[in-house]
Write a protein that binds this DNA or RNA. Structure first.
Lengths: 347, 347
DNA sequence: CGCCGAGTCTACAACGTTGTACTCCTCGCG
DNA sequence: CGCGAGGAGTACAACGTTGTAGACTCGGCG
């Protein structure tokens, strides 16, 4: 059906290798021959069969990206950035969704479907530190996120603790003292929730503000609705606070909505800070002050690191930990200076 | 490096074809032989090389999905649904971003990178009806969206005109008479904007309400910020209206924000309706009344239609047009019954 | 005049898999 | 006892490409 090197070669009256040479711009070809071959290529509309090329070369020109779910804006924006970076590097991206399910993540790691790619950028959510040795795989792998540390693969992630600490310090500096948390995970030490909560506590400790369990809202999945539900629970149990730190933007936006429904003004009564700097955070009402954790850099770095490992799989070198810079993005939901100082509840 | 059939065959003391037969559950194999082969497979951790299998079989087990940008929530949710449906069909998805740029779209259609996939689900944005013959490609293709009709490929899309008409009728039924539009494209006949505007006009005509250019807001790209900008322009030029129909949710949300900033109450002063039923629409303040255009069905149908064409490329049959059902999702930004009747400006 | 090297091109094998055609063996039946 | 049917396994080619080794030609130099 589709034209092959053989067809072109026959039409041009040369060997298939000569056609191959023309395509790869091998220098020693007579102009006349080259012209004839090019003519034949055009005539047949020949395009190389990448599958055959892959088999021959051992490279596919594709990488895989595994994320929990594209429906989560954070991962959609991550995927967009990865695909863009990959395009610049000349490779395409195969996207898998794991649903954040540990079993599916483990299955994916040893799935032969990956044989169609040269390497994997993997953002686990269900796996944990105990699964660290499952990251020992026979292909180039770059791990994202904060579920697993000190693994055998390169790891690109953000400064969760420092960034969360900075966000909390920002709220403290603006005069808030009772900062509620939305999205904590019970007993978690690593993982986004655990690390960000640690940064929060560090900031409180440093400022001499007591940590108060009663204003810590727990929820497992970071879906939109959970931020709302979590905030509703806090309000229902009569928690008192003058600020909210949503452990990601989605949670913060859901929580902010419930706050407003309940008659509280943001930021006058309650300041709200998120984490991720989603596109959407700039367009909520009020717009959301948040932490830009350096996602764009993470995507670029993940791709370039993976491409390095692919280019040179043997010159392994020890696994690297690469950390993005973060910054606080100041918007309306939490101005740096407290606009309308309400009565601050003290303990 | 990785084990091949040869390695397994040598270890098990059989021919490579026997190993292949074991893997494919060919029935006529002695239990003892099968056991030996399976033992060898386990010992070497053999997994088949999918590239080689693809070359041999002519099928890759991957399909491509080309969308303008995953950063646009609509396409992120579409991609999520397509990947999920593809997984159920046993294929993986390679995602490309075109940026909605016509040249990149045309390039993609004849890119040899597609040779790594069995077919393409293509959502063009930059191409138009004039490019219809460029959809004549030598591989299975399913087109989404409303940029091109009556092309040579299967087309899965939504009932834009009917759905927009229904949305407008919904607003009219709730007592609104001056319905502003956000996101119109000047002079466009087909394309999402053109079709939805047509539905809007049909509804106005049917209700005997005059069409008024002065409350039609234009913008090209349907990014978040443009909905806001578009609404600001309407307000600046003193347009008067008691409802807004954002031609998609993103625009509607941006516009709603500006409305509220300007002191107007939603829905009391101005009702707002969107289009797409993004996840996010349920969590804005107020939550957004919108049109669910059947995206989930579109994704599933696109995948199954493509898989059919892949399975049977010859039994072509004429290109099909498949249309999803829609429904109005009633939320707070536009209740079915007008809550707080304000003074309705009449012409 | 003969030989060397560079330029131009070709033949062949290989990547790992699977379809086809074949061989060998065993068993049952006439 | 001979023959055919079918079970069990093998050898080989092919998918389309590219790397390697080599063939052939021609001009220039000793």
């Amino acid at each position: 059906m589709a034209a092959t090197l053989h067809d072109v070669a026959r039409l041009a009256g040369v060997s298939i290798k000569t056609v191959s040479n023309v395509i790869h711009e091998y220098p020693h070809i007579r102009p006349a021959t080259r012209a004839r071959v090019e003519q034949a290529i055009a005539e047949l509309g020949y395009t190389p069969n990448l599958t055959a090329r892959s088999l021959r070369s051992g490279r596919t020109g594709a990488i895989a990206l595994a994320v929990p779910e594209l429906g989560l804006s954070y991962f959609a924006e991550l995927a967009a950035a990865v695909i863009e970076a990959a395009e610049e590097a000349g490779v395409v991206v195969l996207v898998e969704q794991t649903g954040g399910d540990r079993d599916r993540e483990l299955e994916l790691l040893r799935s032969p479907r990956l044989k169609m790619t040269d390497g994997l950028i993997f953002s686990p959510l269900g796996m944990g530190q105990d699964d660290v040795d499952r990251l020992e795989v026979p292909y180039p792998l770059v791990v994202l996120g904060e579920r697993i540390f000190d693994g055998p693969a390169d790891h690109v992630t953000m400064r969760n603790v420092e960034a969360a600490r900075a966000a909390t310090e920002y709220l403290l500096a603006s005069g808030r003292r009772r900062i509620a948390i939305i999205g904590a995970h019970e007993g978690e030490v690593i993982g986004s929730a655990g690390l960000r909560l640690r940064g929060y506590r560090e900031a409180l400790d440093a400022a001499g503000v007591a940590y108060d369990e009663s204003i810590i809202g727990h929820t497992t999945l970071w879906h939109r609705s959970n931020g709302a539900r979590c905030m509703r629970e806090l309000l229902d149990r009569g928690a008192e606070f003058d600020a909210v730190f949503g452990l990601n933007d989605t949670l913060a936006l859901g929580a902010m909505r419930v706050l407003q429904e309940s008659g509280r003004r943001v930021p006058e009564d309650v300041a709200v800070v998120g984490f991720d700097d989603l596109d959407e955070a700039g367009y909520s009402i009020p717009s959301l002050t948040t932490v830009d954790p350096g996602q764009a850099w993470i995507a670029r770095t993940a791709v370039s690191t993976l491409m390095e490992r692919i280019a040179d799989p043997d010159a392994a070198g020890p696994p690297r930990l690469l950390l993005a810079d973060f910054r606080i993005v100041e918007r309306e939901s939490a101005p740096a200076d407290r606009l309308a100082p309400a009565a601050v509840p003290t303990r």
